[in-house]
Nucleic acid binder design. Structure first.
Lengths: 341, 341
DNA sequence: CGTTTTTCCGTAAACGTTTACGAGAACACA
DNA sequence: TGTGTTCTCGTAAACGTTTACGGAAAAACG
């Protein structure tokens, strides 16, 4: 079943060098023999062994995607990633690149997984998700000179790697805008307490918009919680128990929003009636929740495709004629107005 | 940065053979030299190049997971798979195996992707998802003698490969049981029209339970639709427009259930009040939908782990002392009673 | 001390590719 | 006919491992 280049050579009575050159479309091979080689390849069902190729060329033709599920997130499971992965892998496939998925428990263990991939040369590049404000994975990869790109920005590593992010500032800004236009002035911001970078970006936009509208930022309305349903529940309950309640809440994570709405429900507060709720980032859950949650939606699949392109453009071996380029992009979100605000 | 076994050998002034044996824990190497080799390995930051290893050993130490998104499924995105993937990859990582994800458009293109993986030896084995009743991927892999396992059963290929499935018959059966106990006799079954095998299994259980209760199976209450929200909407509307309406519906897919509920809502029919709705298989969407949908829930992450074990047990190179075994398992679902029935 | 066994290590081949180099043949040109 | 050029191909090395084999030295044994 497994036929090698040697089999082809023997079958055609020529050297393996010629076979290889013929298959790889090199110029210094007779049109005739090339034809014969290609036919024999088809006949003997030849396909190149990737291990042999990788060894010789020093490239595995596979890209690792590393995601860090948040602790205690099992059941929920990041619906975010599937469409992103779909786009990423589709574009990689266009370049005959494989996609390797590296997960693993959060924390230190992650670093080991990453080192393993890099040091044993299991992939040619890495795509990082769940980017943190200070991300040691980024430090490690830059220092190692290993090609990578990130989904999300970070303060680590400077502008030396491609990154694609969602415009959380603008989403935070627009969310406030929308709420103020509807008469709200006490607007809470609830975000993850992890140092996930988007929490900071979101808050920047939130603050900026409030200032623009001449509304003083009340620290009591900004709350950080664990990035899951329980965290959202907890922190929302706290905020709503304060003496000067908000009339609107912007959640910076869908799971936290869901938990928060549970807390609201238990207090008899109805989103869309008694309080306005907006979610950044939208997931299918927001749509099916009752009331359906107004949310900012990213284009995940195109983002996956785009990040693949950006990563490839940054790697000399893959870059086009203009040479390698570091591209950083921030994509806007689309407001999906539903019933919660 | 990249230090090879040759570097170690040169540094220690011994042969590469000895270095390799020392690192691999072979018996015929002096305890002293082994110690020195291990220290040098740490000092020079050595890790074995996977390409070299793969080539020599004829094994890549990576497993491909192949999933086939349903057409037009972009936005929705199979929340099912993330926890499964998490479990699968966790167990594979225990064996130092990598996980490669192969997606791609549905249809013929899939076969090509699979062939590529197999023929270029990019993975040592494959895990198939979205198993169809007649699955040409299974035929291909068996014929090629390539190790694989499936998430879901199929009629193809006999009992020659490991498979792990959910007990759809029993879930269908129990769903009917539950509904009958609550006084329903006209129970509709709505399932995907693709030849996804679980649609058949579910229907078997559905039929069996009806017969047990002495209720005649009404073909007008069994409907197939496209496996997405639009399909569920369409087919539910049809069923509800028939003259002798059902008083309960079992949906064999969550996306279809969501679409179906939309159709119901537009007709002013409220699940949990005017009609009973049960979903097989549960996803987070069912939980957050309003009303929350009663559903049968699988243990996805343990299933991922288990299927990894089963796959490995079937491969001689990985099998334990008892030798390779083909294991097939069918796991029960847990009923999560909510508000829709 | 001679013989056998054990311990340890080096040599070299092999896995399947790609590619630098060189050489023979054919061809062109004067 | 002699010289230079172009086409084509074979040879062999290289990528980084693992491992079968054999041999030297040490140890064990009589």
């Amino acid at each position: 079943m497994a036929s090698s280049i040697h089999d082809l050579a023997r079958h055609l009575n020529i050297s393996i060098g010629t076979v290889s050159r013929a298959l790889n479309g090199r110029a210094d091979v007779n049109a005739d023999t090339r034809q014969r080689v290609l036919e024999a390849a088809k006949k003997l069902n030849y396909s190149p062994n990737q291990s042999g190729r990788s060894l010789r060329q020093g490239a595995t033709r596979s890209i690792a995607f590393m995601l860090q599920p948040h602790p205690g997130d099992q059941q929920y499971g990041e619906p975010f990633f599937i469409p992103f992965l779909t786009g990423l892998q589709a574009r990689l496939a266009d370049y005959d690149l494989d996609l390797m998925v590296v997960m693993g428990e959060p924390g230190q263990y992650q670093q080991e997984r990453l080192r393993r991939v890099v040091e044993t040369r299991r992939a040619d590049a890495v795509v990082l998700a769940n980017t943190r404000r200070e991300d040691d994975r980024i430090d490690y990869l830059s220092k190692a000179g290993f090609p990578f790109a990130t989904l999300g920005r970070s303060q680590s590593g400077g502008d030396t790697y491609p990154s694609l992010d969602i415009d959380f500032e603008r989403a935070g800004d627009e969310a406030v805008d929308r709420l103020v236009a509807r008469g709200h002035r006490r607007i809470a911001a609830i975000r993850p307490s992890h140092d996930l970078n988007f929490g900071y970006l979101f808050l920047d936009g939130y603050r900026k918009a409030l200032e623009r509208h001449g509304i003083e930022v009340d620290p009591g309305l900004i709350a950080d919680g664990f990035i899951n349903e329980a965290g959202g529940y907890q922190v929302t309950a706290d905020v709503m128990l304060s003496k000067d309640r908000p009339t609107a809440i912007i959640f910076n994570n869908d799971a936290m929003a869901l938990g928060g709405c549970k807390a609201l429900a238990e207090m008899g507060i109805r989103p869309g009636h008694d309080i306005a709720v907006i979610v950044i980032v939208d997931t299918p859950l927001c749509r099916y929740f009752s009331p359906a949650l107004t949310a900012f939606r990213p284009s995940l699949e195109p983002m996956g495709q785009r990040l693949a392109e950006m990563l490839l453009a940054s790697i000399p071996a893959f870059a086009g004629p203009e040479g390698p380029r570091i591209i950083r992009e921030v994509w806007p979100l689309e407001l999906v107005a539903r019933d919660s605000d």
